[in-house]
Design a protein around this nucleic acid. Structure first.
Lengths: 243, 243
DNA sequence: GTGGCAATATTGTCCGACAAGTAGACAACT
DNA sequence: AGTTGTCTACTTGTCGGACAATATTGCCAC
């Protein structure tokens, strides 16, 4: 199937489209992406496909070992723990600074209202506004590198979400309340309180995610493209090693 | 026991070598790197040179816009501020955690001893052990992503150092004392104290760096690609340290 | 001098080719 | 049997050349 793309640069477009396909689950974790595959699907030269794959590999969206074909990254419980802990490390100190200034970013407040709204509307698709709440806090300190680091983590969270296709839900009610409490503590200038609340908030989310990733092995899906019938996939883990 | 072996590819090798040349100043900030240039210098195909350049671009070692040739990144005062602020954000919370556990990483302690030793020996080449002090703290929380983020920042600090070829110095004596104080406060479980000390420590370094980057416009030199008569400054006796 | 045009340099993309590495199957050998 | 060797099919890593699109430079006319 030929996929259409808008041309900024061929490689840019392919990279973007593939990334999109990964986050929305069209390319499930672990599915292989050969250079030829990509080049024919988009009708471009192999070198261009290769470049796109390399970029996504450097972004950790794909993983590839030496002479082997790239695969969509699979995030396990350990990764989730790591991602959330790093989020906590980064966001805690930012929160303390904001509390010191008693400054609450508008974008975070509106994002939290959105979640509440969605919840009242019966929707549970709150991942996006939830992320905006947090990135709003981070971005408000106006540090490009801090923002970049956090956004990278946020992207990985999205990958996790794509991975467990909407099973698992965190109660929007609790989320909204905790977010509100965090903003309140910032306004009160209570740095320790805000940091503690954030820790609790993210730690709960972390444990829930870890549980639903590690606890339930899930439906153990097949990877559609180019897999022989009844292929027992995914037993390799060792790179170029010698015993 | 499983032993790992590394097999380097052409692109890997070039990438590494170029990166090395950037950090040790052989390729000064702003110098252009055309694909043809690189491909002929290393005697490889242009596609390989291109791949290496793209990797370094994604690492922020080089910068490149649309159809223009890549250049070695130039870090200005704003970048330095950003880098150090992000360091502070990340490292503060890690320090608090360590203080909570009253845990002092051995590697940081030994690294600080090294600085003291070098200072007593009359040397001012303390950038490396200084970084090891800080990465020792970060790495001790055992989070791959946190470490990766911090190491990326540390690399940018190295770039800054390369950029101002050893004018400017921060007294090793003060550095060692502050490091020691930080470790002491961790041992005492004083999270706030440790975080405050770190803030002071890094903020001073930041301001010094910002000053010597922004205040002095510098020699505003031409970029002589590969060996022009004008020998770079590089006097090794001079205090060549900023933190 | 300055605007504009032509020559040049450099990138972005394509193609085709081939060596080298990986993986699975199957035969051969001890 | 179980280990080892070989074959084949697939894929990656690298090469070299080619060409259009774009950026840079230098020159010319005004």
């Amino acid at each position: 199937m030929v996929r259409h793309i808008v041309v900024t640069s061929v490689v840019d477009a392919i990279t973007e489209d593939l990334r999109e396909q990964v986050v929305n689950g069209e390319l499930p974790p672990g599915s292989p992406l050969t250079e030829l595959d990509v080049s024919t699907r988009y009708e471009v030269a192999r070198s261009s496909a290769r470049a796109a794959i390399e970029r996504l590999t450097s972004e950790k969206v794909l993983v590839r070992r030496n002479h082997k074909t790239a695969r969509v990254v699979e995030l396990g419980p350990d990764d989730v723990r790591d991602i959330y802990n790093t989020r906590i490390y980064l966001e805690s100190e930012v929160l303390r600074r904001l509390a010191g200034l008693r400054r609450v970013p508008v974008s975070s407040r509106t994002a939290n209202s959105e979640i509440a709204e969605l919840w009242r509307g019966g929707s549970y698709q709150i991942v996006d506004p939830d992320m905006r709440f947090h990135t709003g806090l981070i971005d408000s300190v106006d540090s490009a590198r801090t923002s970049a680091a956090y956004h990278s983590l946020a992207f990985e969270v999205k990958l996790c979400m794509a991975q467990l296709q909407g099973r698992q839900a965190l109660s929007p009610q609790i989320i909204v309340a905790e977010h509100a409490r965090i903003l309140e503590l910032i306004e009160l200038g209570d740095a320790d309180g805000a940091a503690a609340m954030l820790d609790e908030h993210l730690s709960r989310a972390r444990e829930l995610l870890v549980g639903s990733l590690g606890g339930t092995p899930g439906p153990e899906a097949e990877w559609p493209s180019s897999a022989a019938p009844g292929a027992p996939i995914r037993q390799d883990a060792a790179p170029a090693v010698i015993e």
